[in-house]
C-alpha cells in the first residue's frame, strides 16, 4: 500500500529526514515512534503530498507521490498533528463541511463512521473548541474518515490525551484495521508501540529500526534488570556507582539497569542479581528487589539512542546524584 524509497528532506541547515525507506502492506497498522522533532511530521507531510522530498520516491496505493498526487489525495485520510478542526464550528458543522469538500455527506458514510460518531452525538451541537481533548481527537478522526479513504495517516493523534481516551482511540484503530484500512500512525508514547503490527523507531530524521515490536525487543543485546528498594531516588545514584552498570533509569515503580558483564561471563544472571543486591545492601538500602526482565520497546529505544551519543547527553545528572 505504501512504498517509500530513500527519502531525504532538508530545511535550511537541519536534515529533517535521512534515507527513509519502508513498505507498508495493505491492512497493516504501521507505527512511527520517536520524540518530538525526530522528523515524524515531515515524513507525514511528504507522504500526504503536502510537501516535496528533496530526493527519493514513494508510491501510495501504486500511485506516484509527485506525479499522481491528485489521485492520491482522494484515497487518503489525514489527521495532522494539531487538531485541525474549525473551533468556531459545531461538531456537526465540522463533519458536514469536511464531507462536502470530499463531495459526500454524513449520511452517505454513516456506516463507516457510526461507531465513533455515536460517541459524538450527544455533543453534536457543541463548538469544536469547547470539546475535551479526547472528544476533539475522535471528531478529527471522524473527519479524516468521512470520505472512506483506503489509507489513514494519523500524525501524533494521541499527544496530550489522557490514558483512557488513548486506549479508546487505539481500540477504534483496531476496528478500522479489521475493516481493511491501512493505517500509518506516529506517536511519542512508547507503550503504544506494542499496539502496532510493525514499527519504525525514528530519531534525528533517521530510522533506527523497522520491525515488529516483538522482533525489536528480541534483538535487544543487553542484560536488563529491574531494581527497587525503599529509597528509590537514592537507589538511582547508587546503581550508577556500580562498576558494571552501564545505564540506570527510572521506569515507573522500578529502575531499569543495563549491566555490562566483565569478560567471559560464565555466571548466571541470577548470580549477578545477587551481586548487585549485595552491593546495594552495602550502600545501606533496604527491601531490595533485583530481577531479570525482558525489555520493552522503550528500553530498546533508549538503548538505540543512547549508544551513539553518550557524550551528547549532559553528564550533570550523575554528578548531581553523586552529590547527594
Amino acid at each position: 500500500m505504501i512504498k517509500v524509497h530513500n527519502i531525504y528532506k532538508k530545511y535550511s541547515k537541519i536534515q529533517a529526514l535521512e534515507d527513509i525507506s519502508f513498505d507498508v502492506p495493505r491492512g497493516e497498522i504501521f507505527g512511527i515512534i520517536g520524540p518530538d522533532g525526530a522528523g515524524k511530521t515531515s515524513l507525514f507531510r511528504i507522504l500526504t503530498t503536502l510537501i516535496l522530498a528533496d530526493s527519493g520516491n514513494a508510491t501510495i496505493d501504486e500511485l506516484d507521490l509527485v506525479k499522481q498526487y491528485r489521485l492520491i489525495r482522494n484515497r487518503i485520510g489525514y489527521m495532522p498533528g494539531r487538531f485541525s478542526l474549525y473551533q468556531d464550528l459545531s461538531v456537526e458543522e465540522n463533519l458536514s463541511f469536511y464531507a462536502s469538500i470530499f463531495g459526500t455527506t454524513i449520511e452517505e458514510n454513516a456506516r463507516q463512521i457510526e461507531d465513533i460518531y455515536n460517541q459524538l452525538l450527544p455533543f453534536r451541537k457543541r463548538r469544536a473548541g469547547a470539546l475535551s481533548g479526547g472528544m476533539k481527537q475522535k471528531l478529527a478522526l471522524c473527519c479524516a474518515l468521512i470520505h472512506k479513504p483506503k489509507i489513514l495517516f494519523l500524525d501524533e493523534p494521541t499527544t496530550g490525551v489522557d490514558p483512557v481516551s488513548r486506549n479508546d482511540f487505539w481500540n477504534m484503530l483496531q476496528r478500522l484495521q479489521a475493516e481493511g484500512l491501512t493505517i500509518l500512525v506516529s506517536t511519542s508514547y512508547m507503550e503504544e508501540a506494542s499496539l502496532c503490527d510493525r514499527i519504525a523507531l525514528i530519531q534525528n530524521g533517521r530510522f533506527l529500526k523497522v520491525n515488529t515490536p516483538e522482533n525489536i525487543t528480541k534483538q535487544y543485546q543487553r542484560h536488563l534488570f529491574a531494581v527497587s528498594s525503599d529509597n528509590m531516588s537514592l537507589l538511582l545514584g547508587d546503581l550508577r556507582k556500580h562498576p558494571f552498570v552501564t545505564s540506570s533509569y527510572a521506569f515507573g515503580d522500578v529502575h531499569h539497569i543495563t549491566v555490562e558483564f566483565p569478560d567471559s561471563s560464565a555466571k548466571e544472571f541470577s548470580q549477578w542479581a545477587l551481586q548487585i543486591r549485595e552491593f546495594l545492601m552495602q550502600c545501606g538500602h533496604t527491601n531490595i528487589f533485583v530481577s531479570v526482565i525482558s525489555p520493552s520497546v522503550e528500553d530498546c529505544f533508549m538503548d538505540l539512542i543512547c549508544l551513539p551519543q553518550e557524550q551528547a547527553v549532559p553528564a550533570s545528572l550523575s554528578s548531581v546524584v553523586n552529590d547527594d
Binding site: 507531510r45 500526504t48 503530498t49 503536502l50 491528485r70 489525495r73 482522494n74 487518503i76 489525514y78 495532522p80 498533528g81 494539531r82 487538531f83 485541525s84 478542526l85 474549525y86 473551533q87 469536511y98 469538500i101 470530499f102 463531495g103 473527519c143 479524516a144 470520505h147
Partner: peptide, 13 residues
C-alpha cells in the same frame, strides 16, 4: 495557523 489548510490541501478540492 490552525492546521485546517493541511486538510483542505490534501482534499481533492
Amino acid at each position: 495557523e490552525f492546521g485546517t489548510m493541511e486538510i483542505l490541501l490534501v482534499s481533492p478540492v
